[in-house]
Amino acid sequence: MIFTSAVLEFDKNSYEKLLPFIESHSEVEIYEKDINAGKMILVISTEDDAQLEVIQKDFLANELVIDFTYHAIHFGESVDKLIDGEIKIDFEDINNKKKNKPQ
């Protein structure tokens, strides 16, 4: 299980419209929100990074989302598996995908 916290920036006027979209992702939980500032803290629980990427893509594609950025990732029990090489996380991929996003 990988836990990731992310900051979601959205248009504050569209909070109501955005809520169902967020709730449709069972892996995503809202931990904090500051509607007036258009920010939310999400914690995403996924099995691996590929799943994480799918969620990120999905959010960024939503018109009402201004930005979706990771803050921290906790690898939980998977740390041992990572070190042993059982699971591979390719940081280059994630990095490249980030760089290709419009700036």
Binding site: M1, A6, Y31
Partner: peptide, 24 residues
């Protein structure tokens, strides 16, 4: 333990994002 980890992650993100946990 899971909740603890998630809360900690969320809390540090909140601080970085400038969201206070009380009213702003």
């Amino acid at each position: 333990r899971r909740n603890f980890i998630k809360s900690t992650l969320a809390a540090s993100a909140a601080v970085a994002a400038g969201i206070s946990t009380t009213s702003n």
